[in-house]
Design a binder for these strands. Structure first.
Lengths: 223, 223
DNA sequence: TTGCAATTCAAACAGTTGTATGAAACTATC
DNA sequence: GATAGTTTCATACAACTGTTTGAATTGCAA
C-alpha cells in the first residue's frame, strides 16, 4: 500500500481551516489548496465532503473522550470509586479549556476543531453527536457517586452548567477580554479552569451541610 | 407611501426561518416562498441579503436590550441605586430564557432568532455585534454597584458565567433533556431562571462575609 | 521490462446561490 | 383618464458549490 500522504494532508488541512474559520465558509477548494493536493483527491479518499468531516470528528471525539475518561478513571481509582467532585469537574472541563485557551501558539487545533463542531452543528456531525451523550453519562455517574446525597436532577444541572461555563468562555473569550478591558486574563488557563470548577462545585454542593464551597482565594491560588 | 406589506412579510418570514433552521441553510428562495413574495423583492426592499439580516438583528437587538434595561432600571430605582445582585442577574438572563424555553407554542421567534444570531455569527451580524458590549457594560456597572466589595475581575467573570449558563442551556436544551431522561424540566422556565440566577449569585458572592448564597430550596420555590 | 492496480490530475458537470434586468402591473396625483 | 413614480414579476446572469469523468502518471510485483 502506498503512503497515505495525501489522505493525511487533507485531514490536517481540513482540521486547521475548520478550526480557524468554521465549517460554513471553508470549501473543498480551500482545503485542497492548503493541502497542496488535487481537488478530486477528497472524493477519491473520503467519498464526500460530509464523510471527511465525519471522519475528522469521530477521530477527535474518541481522542478527547479518552483523555477525559483517563483523568476521571485515575481519580476514581485513587479515591476508591469515589472521586472528589472538584476532580471530576476538572477532568470534564480541563482538557478542552487547556486546548482552546492559553497563548496563541500553544493552542491545539484539535480542541478548537471540536469546539467548532459543538457550535456550528453541520449535518454530518449532528448525526454522530448522539454518542457523546453516552460519554457524558459516565461523568454523570461519577458525579452521582461523588455526591450520593444529591438528587439526579441537581447533578444533571451541575454537569450542564459546568460545560456551559467552559464552552461559553471559549466561544466568547474575545468578547470577555474586550468587555473587561483585559482584566480577565484568558491566557492564564489554569485560573480559568479553577474558576469554572469552583463555581460548578458550588452549584453542586450548595445548600447541604457538607457544602464546603472552595473560597475564591483557593480558586485563584490553585494554579 | 404604499403599505409595506411585502417588506414586513419578508422580515417575518426571514426571522421565523432563521430562528428555526439557522442562517447557514436558509436561502433567499426559502424566505420569499415562505413570505409569498417575489424573489427580487428582497433586493428591492433591503438591497442585499446581508442588509436584511442586519436590519433584523438591529431591530431585535434594540428591543431585547430595552426590555432588559427596563427591568434593571426599575430594580435599581427601587433600591436607591443599588439593586440586589439576584435581581440584576434575573433582568439579564430572564427575558432571553423565557423567550427561548417553555412550552413549544409560546416560545418567541424573536428570542430564538437572537440566540441563533449569538451562535452562528454570520458576517453582517458580527460587524454590528460590538455594540452589545456597551449594553453589557451597563449590567457590569450595576453589578459593581451592587457588590462594591467585589473586584472588577470577579464581577466580569460572574457576568460571563451567568450568560454562559443561560445561553448554553438554551442551545443544548435538547441534549440536557435526553441526558437526564426528561428529569430536567426545560418547560418550567422559572425554575431554570432560578437555577441560573442562584448559581451565578453564588459565583459572585462566595468567599465573602455577607455571602448568603440562596439555598437550593429557595431557588426552587422562587417560581 | 512488462503489466496492472492505485493514485493523481485537469477539466467539465449539474446544481445552487445571491443579484441584476427590463417589462408589466399597480397607485396616486393632476 | 392620462401621467409619473413605485412596486411586482418572470427571467436571466455570473459566481460558486460538491462531485464526476477519463486520461495521465505513479509504484510495485512478476
Amino acid at each position: 500500500m502506498a503512503s497515505d500522504h495525501t489522505r493525511s494532508a487533507i485531514l490536517a488541512a481540513a482540521e486547521r481551516l475548520y478550526a480557524d474559520r468554521g465549517f460554513s465558509d471553508v470549501t473543498l477548494r480551500d482545503i485542497v489548496a492548503e493541502a497542496n493536493v488535487n481537488l478530486a483527491a477528497v472524493n477519491y479518499h473520503f467519498g464526500s465532503k460530509d464523510e471527511l468531516i465525519a471522519e475528522l470528528f469521530v477521530t477527535r471525539s474518541i481522542a478527547t473522550n479518552r483523555e477525559r475518561l483517563r483523568e476521571l478513571k485515575a481519580a476514581e481509582e485513587q479515591g476508591g470509586g469515589r472521586a472528589p467532585i472538584e476532580v471530576i469537574l476538572r477532568a470534564l472541563v480541563g482538557p478542552t479549556l487547556r486546548g482552546c485557551l492559553g497563548p496563541e501558539n500553544q493552542r491545539s487545533t484539535a480542541a478548537r476543531f471540536m469546539i467548532r463542531a459543538s457550535i456550528e452543528s453541520v449535518p454530518p456531525i449532528r448525526r454522530i453527536k448522539n454518542r457523546e451523550i453516552d460519554h457524558l453519562r459516565k461523568f454523570a455517574g461519577a458525579m452521582r457517586r461523588s455526591l450520593p446525597e444529591r438528587s439526579d436532577v441537581d447533578v444533571y444541572w451541575g454537569l450542564n452548567f459546568a460545560l456551559a461555563m467552559a464552552h461559553h468562555t471559549i466561544r466568547e473569550s474575545e468578547r470577555l477580554t474586550k468587555l473587561s478591558e483585559g482584566k480577565c486574563d484568558l491566557d492564564d488557563v489554569e485560573d480559568v479552569v479553577a474558576r469554572v470548577v469552583s463555581v460548578a462545585t458550588m452549584a453542586l454542593t450548595a445548600g447541604k451541610a457538607e457544602a464546603k464551597a472552595p473560597s475564591r482565594a483557593l480558586a485563584r491560588d490553585a494554579r
